[in-house]
Amino acid sequence: MRHGKYRFLAGAMALPLLLYGVFVLWPYVQAFYLAFTDWNGLSSGAKFTGTENFTKLFSDPLFLAALRHNGLMLVAVPLGTIAIALFLSAATQRTKVYRVVYFFPQLLSVAIIAVLWQFIYTPNSGLLNGLLRGIGLGSWAKSWLAEPNFALIAVMVVMVWSAVGFYVVLFTAAMESIPGDIMEAALIDGASPARIFWRITVPLIWDSVQVAFVYLGIAALDGFALVQIMTVGPGGPDGSTEVMGLGLWRNAFTYGKFGYACAMGVTIFFLTLSIAALFLKATKRDQVELA
């Protein structure tokens, strides 16, 4: 094209690429190397230890607990969120005001949500136990985050609570693009609302449902901020809310086991990739073409 093209390109891209290289690319590359060392952050340097970190990792009871908890979240959170969001989307249809309200938690930081829900779960002065006592179910009241059997469920409830609104907006937008005559035809043929929902609505918005599964699946491998702020320890009573990110953070910035923490990071990375690929494949359906 015109002269000065390469000068312009170099000038425009140098700074952003430098920034990306130094703060994003270089740390990612280093993490893969450090995962195979015993680095503890001291100047003495890192000794190459092969796969030792990974063997240790998979016999570390706390990390195995974290894997189990993230695995449980991986099943429960996407299913719970998508079921509620689909149901609410089908029910709201043209009433816009609900969408506006439901979406709001999506805008709040997980840190804020964690603090808010910590108050809700507080044993004596919390909203939840107050509600249970108010409706005569006082015997159900408990200190939700301090009981090993309930702490993780309590955390998952928060994840679902904050995510539903986003997917209601996503699903309703997809539902609005379904041509009205398809619905009319089904109604004339005498299909019940439930049948229309499962046989027409859900298949026609399946792309969005698939996106939801992948996003929520990736989010379920995190959970760090909620657990770190809400549960005692952090990590809950008896490590009952331990998640992988928390283990990484603790090993790195409390114990100074940076090599070991990087091995956790590498594990999280491969799990994230596999989950995304797996969910995409598992939720694959034959495309429904609208003529």
Binding site: L25, P27, F269
Partner: peptide
């Protein structure tokens, strides 16, 4: 593609080296 690949990686992976870079 190098730039866009950044979206695939969890921040947790970079956390430790990033701390030392900064």
């Amino acid at each position: 593609y190098t730039l866009v690949a950044g979206m695939l990686f969890p921040v947790f992976l970079a956390l430790v080296p990033l701390f030392f870079v900064v």
